[in-house]
């Protein structure tokens, strides 16, 4: 193994004997942008996800309405206690996750410009499988979690954590290059944005 490594690195150095140089990376692209609830709501909805913009006191009642009577996977550290649903908590097997009606989480960051929510496995988000196997993902975003642009979002994220960027429900463009929603990931994505 060591020899393949040495040989490849040797080939790379050989290949670069002409000592190519390039100018420094120009970073004059747009860094910041509108981080509004409205823009995020519009962009998430564009992917045919369901969006609710709510005031803080209405979060729990709305969640209760949406999830009542359902078996919902809930990660540790979730800030909202929702009445009327059956909360499923780890340890859960893949079969149990697969059989759940949905998952309810918060997020780490949201990106207004692209309509993306980002999960980083922190409190209220859980390990990645929790939001993958249940067919319905309900995600709550606080206004202060909204970043305007991709550069602003990456600044706030820690790449050493496992990250999942979610932009709409699972989809495919593999048939005639036309986007249809609903393949392996959750087929329904519902985002609550707190004003």
């Amino acid at each position: 193994m060591a020899s393949a490594r040495a040989e490849i690195l040797g080939r790379v150095r050989d290949a670069l004997r002409d000592k190519p140089t390039a100018p420094p990376v120009p970073r004059d692209y747009v860094r910041s942008g509108e981080a509004s609830v409205e823009l995020l709501a519009e962009r998430v909805a564009h992917y045919r996800a369901t969006v609710h913009v709510v005031a803080e006191p209405d979060v729990v009642p709305l969640l209760g309405e949406l999830l009542a009577g359902k078996r919902i996977v809930v990660p540790d550290g979730l800030a909202w206690d929702v009445p009327g649903m059956t909360a499923l908590r780890d340890p859960l097997t893949v079969a149990e996750l697969d059989a759940a009606d949905g998952a309810l989480t918060g997020c780490a960051v949201a990106i207004a410009q692209t309509g993306t929510i980002v999960l980083d496995g922190g409190p209220g988000q859980g390990r990645r499988a929790l939001t993958l196997l249940p067919d319905h993902h309900v995600c709550v975003v606080r206004a202060d979690q909204i970043a305007g642009t991709v550069p602003e979002a990456l600044e706030r994220l820690d790449p050493l954590r496992p990250l999942t960027f979610v932009s709409g429900p699972s989809a495919t463009s593999d048939i005639e290059l036309d986007r249809v929603e609903g393949v392996h990931g959750p087929r329904r994505l519902e985002v609550l944005i707190i004003r």
């Binding site: 962009r43 564009h46 992917y47 990106i111 410009q113 692209t114 309509g115 993306t116 496995g121 390990r127 990645r128 499988a129 790449p159 050493l160 954590r161 496992p162 990250l163 999942t164 960027f165 979610v166 932009s167 709409g168 429900p169 699972s170 989809a171 990931g185």
Partner: peptide, 17 residues
């Protein structure tokens, strides 16, 4: 604007993946 899913992982994360 963004593809539906982007995954980022670093080595192994105990308890996740």
């Amino acid at each position: 604007r963004m593809n539906p899913y982007t995954s980022v992982w670093t080595g192994v994360t105990p308890g996740d993946g």
